[in-house]
Design a protein around this nucleic acid. Structure first.
Lengths: 285, 285
DNA sequence: ACGCGTTACGTGAGGCGTAAGCATA
DNA sequence: TATGCTTACGCCTCACGTAACGCGT
C-alpha cells in the first residue's frame, strides 16, 4: 500500500535533487530515504528513477508521480484545514455588525447564554453582512434598518442617537438645548474613531466638505479630543458603555439620519437555537 | 502526520457504519480500527465522531473528512494507474492500422528490431488513427494513401490488391483472366471476415445493395467460404501471409479502389528511433 | 445474553540509524 | 579524497491482536 510518507519523501527528493539533501530536510537518514523510494517503486511496479552508481534522478514516470504526489499532499493539507475550519465554525457564533454599538451589548449576552462557544464580533459593510449571513460567514448580523427577507428572522433592538461632541467654547456649543443640524458645521475638520461602520457613510453624506481625521488608536483619539478644539462624535450608547470622561458639550443632532434603530437578524433555521439571545436583546435606547 | 491508512480506515467506516464491520472488511481487528480513528482525530485536532457508550457515528466534521478522504484515495489510485500507463507506453510500440495487412508485415519486423518492447497492433478507423498518432496513442499508423502533414513522416510501403473469391461454378468465375468490376455482383450476399478496416468502406461504397455476412471467428469464416456458394474476398497479401487453402477462383477486380498502397507514418520526432524500421519496410506487392 | 466500542497489555513486523562498500568526479 | 547511492545489520518503535471491561438493547 502506498503511504503518504512515501509521497512526502518523493516530493522532498524532487525539491532537493539528491537523496542526501532531501533526507536531511526530512530529518531522516539518507539510507532510509533510499529504501523508502525503492519501496514506492516496488508498490507502483514501475521504476521512478534513473540510477547510475552514485547518481539518481527522476525518469518520466517519476516526474509524473511527483506531480500527482504534490497534488495529493496539497489535498491532504486542505482537508485538515477545511475540517478544522468547519469545527471552528461550529464552536463560534460570528456576529457581523453595521456599527460598533450592537456588539457592545450583544457579545456579553451571547457569552452568557452560550458558554463554551467562541463569540466573534466585527464591523463590516452592509452588503457583505447580508451576503455573509446568507453564506454562513455570520450567524447573526446587525443592520441600521429592518430587512424583510424570506430566509431571515429580523428583530428591532437598541436605538442609537448621534451627538456632536464640542469644546464648551465652540460657537455651536450653546445649542446644547435646542439641538442643531450637521450641515451647520460642514467644512470643519472632524475627529473620528475608526471602524464606525455605516455611521461613516452618514458623516460623509451630511458633511461632504469636511475632512475627517480618523484615529485607529482609542487612547490617541481620546487625547486628541481633549487637547484640540476639533469637534467629534459620541452617541447615547458610547456614553452608556464607555462613559463621557471629558468636559465636552454633547449637542443633539436634528437630522433624521442621526438616529437609528439597530435590527438583529439570523437565518430562520438558526432562530430556534438563538431564541434565548433574541429574547434578551435590549430594547429602546 | 496523517497517513493514507487512516483515510482508508475512515472511508471503510463510512461505508460500513460500524467499527466492527469496517474492521472486518479491512482485515484488521476492531480495536485497531478504533485506535486508528482516535489517532486521526488527534492529528486533525478535531472530533470526527459522536460517541455514545457503545455507539459511534460521524459528526459533521467526520462527514466532511470522509468526502476529502474518498477524493484523496481516488487520486492515489489514479496516480498509480497513470504512472503505470505511462511506463507501459514507454515499453510498447503501438501500431494503428487502417487494415489488417500492414500489421502482418510490420509486427515481426518491429519485434526483431526492438526486442524487449511490446508491440501492439490494432485496426482502427482512419480519423482515430490520425488523432491517435498526434496524441501519442500510436507511435506508428498505416493509411491507404499518402498524408502530407508538417508533424508526420510518411513513407509508402506494400501494395494490397483485392480479389473476388468465387466458387468455380459461379457465373463470374470465368472472368478470372479478364477481371471484372465489383458492381457486377452488387446485390449478392457476401461473406466478410471482421476487422477489415477501411476495406469495409470500399465494399459498402461499390456494392451498396449487397448484404455482408460478417464473421468474427476465422475458422467459422473459412468453413463458410468452403461450404457455401457465397462470394468472399482475398488479397495478394492475405494469400501471401495465410495461403489460399481452398478451391476458390480469384478474380481480379478492375475498380481502381481495389488496389491501394499502404503508407506508414510516425511523428517526426520519433523518426530517428524508428528509422531502422522504416528502412526495413517491404515495398511494392 | 449479545453486540458494539474502549482500554490494557504483550508481541512482532517494519522502518530506522549506523556502518561498510563501491563508484564517480 | 570527497560525495552520493546502496546494502548489511541490529535496534526500537508502533501498530497489531488478544483479552478484559463497560454499556445498552
Amino acid at each position: 500500500m502506498i503511504e503518504l510518507a512515501q509521497l512526502r519523501h518523493l516530493a522532498a527528493f524532487h525539491q532537493s535533487g539528491t537523496l542526501s539533501q532531501a533526507a536531511e530536510e526530512l530529518h531522516i537518514s539518507q539510507p532510509a530515504l533510499s529504501r523508502s523510494m525503492q519501496k514506492l517503486e516496488e508498490e507502483l511496479q514501475v521504476p521512478l528513477f534513473e540510477r547510475q552508481k552514485n547518481k539518481i534522478r527522476l525518469n518520466a514516470n517519476g516526474q509524473m508521480a511527483v506531480e500527482h504526489a504534490q497534488r495529493i499532499l496539497e489535498d491532504v493539507k486542505e482537508m485538515a484545514e477545511q475540517v478544522r475550519a468547519l469545527d471552528r465554525r461550529s464552536h463560534t457564533i460570528a456576529l457581523g455588525n453595521c456599527a460598533p454599538a450592537p456588539g457592545w451589548s450583544a457579545v456579553p449576552v451571547l457569552s452568557n447564554l452560550y458558554p463554551g462557544m467562541t463569540i466573534s464580533s466585527e464591523v463590516q459593510e452592509i452588503p457583505q453582512l447580508i451576503d455573509g449571513l446568507r453564506d454562513g460567514t455570520y450567524q447573526i448580523i446587525t443592520l441600521p434598518y429592518a430587512l424583510a427577507d424570506e430566509a431571515f428572522y429580523c428583530q428591532a433592538a437598541q436605538k442609537e442617537t448621534l451627538f456632536l461632541c464640542l469644546p464648551p467654547k465652540h460657537p455651536c456649543a450653546q445649542k446644547v438645548e435646542t439641538g442643531m443640524n450637521l450641515e451647520e458645521i460642514d467644512g470643519e475638520t472632524v475627529l473620528l474613531f475608526s471602524t464606525l461602520g455605516f455611521w461613516h457613510s452618514v458623516h460623509v453624506k451630511l458633511m461632504p466638505h469636511s475632512r475627517f481625521l480618523i484615529q485607529h488608536d482609542r487612547d490617541t483619539f481620546s487625547e486628541l479630543v481633549n487637547t484640540t478644539m476639533l469637534p467629534s462624535f459620541m452617541t447615547n450608547l458610547s456614553v452608556k458603555y464607555f462613559g463621557k470622561n471629558n468636559d465636552r458639550v454633547l449637542v443633539p443632532l436634528l437630522n433624521p439620519e442621526a438616529s437609528v434603530t439597530f435590527h438583529f437578524l439570523c437565518r430562520k433555521e438558526n432562530y430556534k437555537k438563538l431564541k434565548p439571545f433574541f429574547r434578551q436583546l435590549p430594547k429602546g435606547e
